[in-house]
Structure formats: C-alpha cells, structure tokens
Design a binder for these strands. Structure first.
Lengths: 349, 349
DNA sequence: TTTTAGCACTCTAACTAGAGGAGTGCTAAG
DNA sequence: CTTAGCACTCCTCTAGTTAGAGTGCTAAAA
C-alpha cells in the first residue's frame, strides 16, 4: 500500500468528514463541511477536495447523489494520522482504578470487571482474554479426594488464578497421601512458569526413580497429566455488552449481527484474535476489512495487551461498528490495560 | 381463570392451528386447516369453530382478514392439554449422557456443557443456574498466601464446585499457619451445608474463647467472613446460544431482542427466575405474558430443576420464542435435568 | 340441527408514479 | 485557485391502485 501524502486542507476535510460520519452515521455532504469549517470555504471547493479524496480511495459515495462516507482506508488514515489526542476524563480514570483495584475477587473477577468497564464506558462490546498459560507462574498445587477414585486437582497461579480439573484415578488414594503429593509438587514446582514446570516434571521423572518412594512417583505422573493437559485449558474470555452492539445495529445489520454472535460462540477464535497483540506494545486498531475473521469485517477492534511484572500476558479490547469513536476507544483501552497491569502487579507483590 | 371445556373437534382444530403456526410462523387460515384435516371438513365449518375459539380467547387475528394466531392462553391450553407426547430420540439421549458424564471437568464445566446441549439441541437459548449455596455441602477449606497480607481463600463443595475470594488481612500470617487454619476449618465444618456451617461458626465463636489459641480464633473469624459473604456470591449462570435467538428474530423483533439482551446482563434476575422451579418438580412452562419479567413477555421459558442426592439444588431451561416446539423442548429439558442429577450423583458417591 | 357453498367485505402487501430534496460534477466567471 | 450557477442523478416519501388471502354472514343442502 502506497504512502498517502495529503496537504493540510485535504487532511482537515477528511478529518471533518470522518468525525461527522462517526457522529451522525449519515453520508456527509459538502455543505455540511463548508459550514463547519473555521475559515469560510465554499461547498464547491470542498467538493473538489472530496473528489480527490475519493480518487485516493479514502472516501466513497453510497450512490451518485449522496454525500461521502469513509472507506476502510479512510478510517485507517484517520486513525493513523488524524486522531485527535484525547485522554480519558479524570473521573473515569478514577472509576477504572477503583473498580479494578478494590475488588475482593480472584483473577476471574478482576477480568470480568475489566470487560464490564470496557463495555460500559465505550458503549460497545468489551472483551478480555485471561493471561496465557505459558506466562503463568505456579504457586500451589492441591489434590482433593472427592469420592472413591475421583480427585479434584487444582493449581493456583501467583496472580490468584485458579485452574482445576477432576481426574479418575486407577486406584484409591487417601486424602492424607494426596495432601503429601500436593505439598511435594508445590515445593518443587512453585515459582516456575508452566512450561518450566513441564520441563522440570520430565526431568524429575527421568531421574533414578529409586530415589523417590512410590507415592511421589504417582505425584509426578499426576502432575504431568495435569500440566500436559493445561495447554488446551481454554484460557477464559470475558465478553460483555452484547446489547450495546444490538442497540446501534440498524435493521439491515441484523444478518451481520447473527454471524457475529455465532462467531463469538467459538471462544477459541476470539482468544487467537486478541492474543495477536501480545507481541507488540501499545494500542492497536483493526479496521473493517483488515480483520482476519470474515464475520468481523463490518466492525472495528481496538485492543492492547496487559502484563504481569515482566511480560505481556493477556489482551483486552473493544469491538464496535466501524464508525466508533476511535479517539475515545483508544484512550479507554489504553487506560484499562494499564490499570489491569497495575492490578496484577499489586496482586503478586 | 375459568376452566375451559372444549369438545373433540375444537381441541383438534386448536391443536392444528397451534402446530401449524409453530411450524410456519404465519397466521393460519381455515383452508389450511381443512386441507390438513383427516376427515374432510369444509373451511366454513372450520371457520365456525375458529370463531368460537377466538371468543374463548384462545386464538386471535392480527387483523380482520388474516388467519388465526394462538394467544398466550391458546398456547397454555395447548401445552396443558394437547401436547403430543414425545420422547427425545435415543441417539440424542446417548449424546446427552455421554457429554455430561464423561467430562473430566469440575462442576462449572459440567454446567456449561449442559447449557450448550440445551442450546444446540433446542436451537434456542440454553440457561443453567449453578446449585444454590444453601444446599452446598462443604468439603474442604484452604487458605493460600499470595503476597504480603493478601490471601486467597477457597472452599470446595462435595460436588466439586470451587468458590474463592481474595482477602486482605490486617496482619501477615505465614503459609504454615494458614494451612493449619484451613485444616482446622475443614475438619470442623466439612460435611455440613453452608447454612449449617454459618451456624456452627457462630457457635464455636461464642464458646469460651480461652479454649482456642489465637490462631484458631483468627481462623474462625476468617471463616465467618468467608461464608457470611457467600450469600451474595452470585451462583454462576451459564447462558449459551444467543445467536439462535437472533436467527429466528424478524427485523421488527429487533427491539425485543435489545431489551432481552439487556435484561440478560443482570444475571441476578435470571437466577431468581429459574430458581422459582426449585420448589416444584417436573418440567414447567412459562408462556409469554405469564412471565414476571417484562422483557421476556414475548418469549416462553421451559425449565426444570436438577438435584443432588436429596434436594433440588439448581435449575435449567430453554428460552425461545412463544412459537417454540414445546413438545420437544419439554422432553429435552426433562432429559438434561435428569442427566445432570445423575452426573451429580456420580460425583458425590 | 349441522354442514357447506356462495358472496360481499376487509385489510394487507406489493407495485407504480410523481413530487421533493439533497448532493454532485461541470463550466465559466471572479 | 476559488466560487456561483446550473443541469443532472438518485434516493425517499407519499398517494393511489391492484391482487390476494381470509373472513363473516346467509341461505341452501344434508
């Protein structure tokens, strides 16, 4: 895609068109722009510029005698080069900090609250993806005998996330023995990330098995099972505010909405989509057809990652119509991502 | 509401009208019924009967020259007296059993699967409410020191449900001490239901405090905090299949859908709604305006409860348009509720 | 007494035609 | 380079018309 160079007036007019369309949802005519322009400029002049912008593929007309509407590339230019600097209001900032730092909940609660904030404050769909397991630091392992050979295996991460599964053992084990097994694994594996845990387990198992009593051998194999599986443990996705999307949808968008909702039933795809931004910092904006998922083509996604003390671990964002308020969404996502990072730090210190 | 007595023909025609409307979604004319009738009957005769049914408030016309549509009372009569006996197919039955009994997950996973089954098999919205806390039997208490004075408190129920919160202590406690506290509470409170646990805690605390060392006193107060709060721990709700609802919605139902989705963001209300059926056995059907929630008025809800070995503990159901396939929904909800009860029994034995 | 054919009537959905209006592109003058 | 003027396009809204489905009523048939 060629770099597009626009002179000052063209930039100014493009910005006005996009802003106006975002605000009204109606195609923007030359008169509207001319009126709103600071130095008086005739509609005809505006039309000339708009025709140029259309030639560059930044604007288009729904039909010959309608006003202009931004194309995907138009939005892209707007977001990249024209976005009015905006900070979230200090009162909103405060709400965010208080909501995310005071909660008495576990990690899941924190993330759900974050998603709710994204949704409420942007009036769009809020999405939060839980920390990836590869960055999760193991804190504690516990085995609880539920009944007979049924055992609840659970581990807690340093940031307070809780993962659990139920396993059916081949032979019964007493709770006392299970407790010993849990303590053994907690002591030997605590503080490591899950990939490290897996490696360490393999290492321990390959050592001269005579060193360990039979119980601990079993502990190792149970641990291996637990953490081997943890790859497909779908890390949670927290989606809030579906009704916001429906609110803005016109009657003809109904089909899009159907597809969209159906797509959202496959959480795996959402995770992958959001986790793209684990590798690069800052807020990212994906506009309309740039989207890899066909169902999201008529939408835009504003997203960023959040970190534990060292690395990006999870992602969050706002999904809305292409004519969303990008300036606001960007500052909002940025603020909430930072607040999540902050809240995570507080938990682990 | 007066008992309505209908003769054989009227019942038969009402049934045909409701069935036809459920199937087609179009107002049903007298010709349609006359054609589908086993013994040939003229449209005029059918019209007479239909006029009677309209007089009884069981049918109505969208406008003078349209066919008939069932009223809420019409659906009610159909569900109460005309519902064709139907059992779920044996292959579906098998899918349900396998899905709900083989899963290696915790309780949350089981309930999510149940919700997914309800949604997929009914092509409507599936809703499952987690077991109420008042019936939850405590299995184990655990305290984990996350950092500084931050402690993850968690308890596990007999059926494998896991509840956790994070608490900020006034003074630091070592993990060893926390473990002792957890063991103490597990031993003294395990096997009791949560209300019993609360009572027992109060009792223990009121005893001569000199009997206990300081640590155990702290354990008691932490436990009291933990379980006192557990009342507002929103028991989970698992809702799946929103896109199904959208699929059937016509363009003019868009507003209803908005309201509906907005209502569903308040999970508390959903819990209350479903938990109504904890007190009475069997499948219950709530039709249209019978619904207590105004947003659900254009919808119908088919629901039932599921039990642990003794008592009803949770509820599940299917929400769909008033013209849903009641026969199928009823048998489906019944089957899945039974399967959940069964799966719960297996877990706790 | 019950059923049915016939008929006039009602109301909607779909189509057509025309008026009004917003907005454009082009041209020529400032 | 800007702008006024103008012809043109195309959408949207309204009103009027038609076709069709379905009804209720009446009177004849069973």
């Amino acid at each position: 895609m060629p770099e597009i160079q626009l002179d000052k007036r063209a930039r100014s007019i493009l910005k006005a068109v996009v802003s106006s369309f975002i605000h009204s949802g109606q195609p923007v005519g030359s008169r509207t722009i001319a009126r709103a322009y600071r130095e008086p400029l005739s509609p005809a002049s505006v039309r000339n510029v708009m025709a140029d912008l259309e030639g560059l593929g930044l604007l288009c007309q729904p039909h010959t005698s309608a006003g202009r509407v931004p194309t995907d590339r138009g939005y892209r230019y707007y977001v990249d080069s024209l976005l009015p600097a905006q900070r979230i209001s200090s009162s909103e900032e405060r709400v965010i900090r208080e909501t995310l730092q005071e909660g008495p909940e576990d990690l899941a609660g924190l993330l759900e609250r974050a998603s709710l904030l994204l949704s409420r404050l942007s009036r769009n769909l809020g999405i939060v993806v839980a920390p990836v397991l590869s960055q999760t630091i193991l804190k504690h392992v516990e085995f609880l005998r539920l009944s007979g050979r049924r055992v609840l295996t659970l581990f807690v991460s340093k940031s307070g996330a809780l993962h659990n599964r139920i396993v059916q053992l081949e032979e019964e084990i007493s709770q006392a023995e299970l407790t010993r097994m849990g303590n053994f694994l907690s002591t030997h594996l605590g503080g490591k990330t899950l990939p490290q845990v897996r490696k360490e387990l393999l290492h321990l198992m390959s050592e001269d098995t005579a060193l360990y009593d039979r119980l601990l051998q079993r502990a190792l194999s149970l641990g291996a099972w637990m953490f081997a599986q943890s790859e497909d443990l779908q890390s949670g996705v927290y989606i809030e505010g579906a009704s916001n999307l429906l609110d803005r949808a016109g009657t003809q968008d109904l089909e899009h909405m159907r597809d969209l909702f159906r797509a959202f039933e496959d959480k795996h795809r959402i995770v992958q989509l959001l986790n793209q931004c684990l590798t690069s910092d800052g807020v990212q904006v994906v506009i309309g057809s740039e989207n890899s998922e066909p169902e999201l083509r008529p939408m835009s996604l504003v997203m960023a990652n959040y970190s534990n003390e060292e690395n990006p671990v999870g992602a969050l964002g706002v999904l809305g119509p292409m004519r969303m308020e990008y300036a606001r969404a960007v500052s909002l996502v940025d603020a909430i991502a930072r607040a999540c990072t902050e809240a995570l730090r507080e938990r682990t210190n």
